[in-house]
Design a protein around this nucleic acid. Structure first.
Length: 222
DNA sequence: GCCCAGGGGGCTC
DNA sequence: GAGCCCCATGGG
């Protein structure tokens, strides 16, 4: 793959959809909470939960680390696996309070890969969630991979559809400048394209990438 | 009624 | 390491 290709795709998406303004939140701590709550659920479900937490003044590491389970479950029920997610939130907040005085910037103040390893060691934080936290909350340049990334770029014919997370991430990291705002906008645009166009049943007619998508050129191949 | 979301963990083989 | 199941709401 030519290095220029990934930038060309980005430019086409940006022209078509414009800036996505991720991550929608009032604070970097809120971004972390959103990253955990949005695991396998649409963002509209997450907004309700975050609004609930705000209304009750609970959106802080100190409050969430010691909140009653039943109460938390009720507030974040809209985010699907709410018992698991409740525990994940409390786990993270407890860790933050005990090790960093509840200050995420003290947690973030380290090398990008050291931070990644540390976050990955926390239960309930996998690769995608951790990379989202690093990119959108800590604002360090790491490329976030998700199911849409795999689906879209394998259909474009530039990556193997069986590549794992790490391999796919390396392709983007090796072929793009390590720029936080580029990675921010690129991932958001991929999600936008995935949601609106490139679903299981794609709408190739309205896809801004259709002139170089192999799926579009020979549909019966897939 | 169906489908699937801005995943991760645990288990089996 | 891959394949499967579990979790368990809401919008189209």
């Amino acid at each position: 793959m030519e290095k220029h290709f990934l930038l060309t795709v980005f430019e086409n998406l940006y022209v078509a959809f414009g800036p996505q303004n991720w991550w929608p939140s009032e604070s970097d701590f809120e971004t972390v909470i959103g990253a955990i709550l949005t695991q396998s659920v649409s963002w509209s479900n997450v907004e309700k939960a975050i609004d609930n937490l705000k209304k009750e003044n609970l959106l802080s590491p100190q409050s969430l680390s010691k909140i009653d389970d039943e109460r938390l479950h009720a507030l974040i029920r809209s985010t699907r696996f709410y018992k698991q997610k409740g525990e994940r939130l409390k786990n993270f907040c407890r860790y933050l309070v005990e090790n960093y005085e509840g200050n995420i910037y003290k947690l973030f103040d380290k090398d990008i890969f050291e931070l990644r390893r540390e976050l990955l060691s926390l239960k309930g934080l996998g690769k995608e969630t951790v990379d989202s936290i690093i990119l959108y909350a800590a604002k360090k340049p790491i490329f976030v991979v998700d199911a849409y990334t795999k689906r879209i770029f394998s259909r474009l014919g530039v990556v193997d559809e069986n590549l794992d997370y790490q391999a796919l991430q390396e392709i983007f990291m090796q072929n793009l400048p390590h720029d936080t705002s580029l990675f921010n906008e690129y991932h958001a645009l991929i999600v936008k394209l995935g949601k609106d166009v490139c679903k299981t049943k794609p709408k190739c007619e309205i896809c801004p990438l259709n002139n170089f998508c192999k799926y579009y050129i020979s549909k019966n191949k897939f």
